[in-house]
Design a protein around this nucleic acid. Structure first.
Length: 110
DNA sequence: TTTATGGCTGTCA
DNA sequence: ATGACAGCCATAA
């Protein structure tokens, strides 16, 4: 566990239940713009049980990203449905509705 | 060290 | 809408 991952996890932990954030969004909030891919890497390092709501992170299109082990795609979808997050006919989430408006819950800092 | 491979994303055709 | 590409950079080998 290094500082980079810790920051990413800290941000993911703040995502409210029933909401989702994109990898890029998490990267920005963790003050590491353009490192969306590394966010994905950090999350894949979890896999096991943890208090990190990894399932609340989706890609910029509002879909669940493809990964090596497709099993987790289904698990993620199931977990989100449990939180009342809706998927449209194309299997995507309407980010305008379920996207996390971080500004409202993120600590203010200047 | 170098290469390859990722739970990504914005841009452009 | 879809697909190719180029940036991005941590890990593993």
């Amino acid at each position: 566990m290094n500082r980079t991952y810790a920051r990413i996890y800290a941000v993911v932990k703040r995502i409210p239940k029933g909401r989702v954030a994109t990898y890029g969004q998490v990267a920005v909030l963790a003050r590491m713009p353009r490192r969306a891919r590394q966010v994905g890497y950090a999350l894949s390092a979890l896999t096991d049980q943890s208090d990190i709501p990894w399932h609340r992170v989706v890609n910029a299109k509002g879909e669940i990203s493809r990964r090596k082990n497709p099993i987790y795609e289904d698990i993620q979808r199931a977990l989100l449905k449990t939180e009342k997050v809706r998927f449209d006919t194309a299997g995507r989430i309407n980010l305008a509705r379920f996207g996390w408006q971080a500004a409202a819950s993120a600590p203010k800092r200047f």
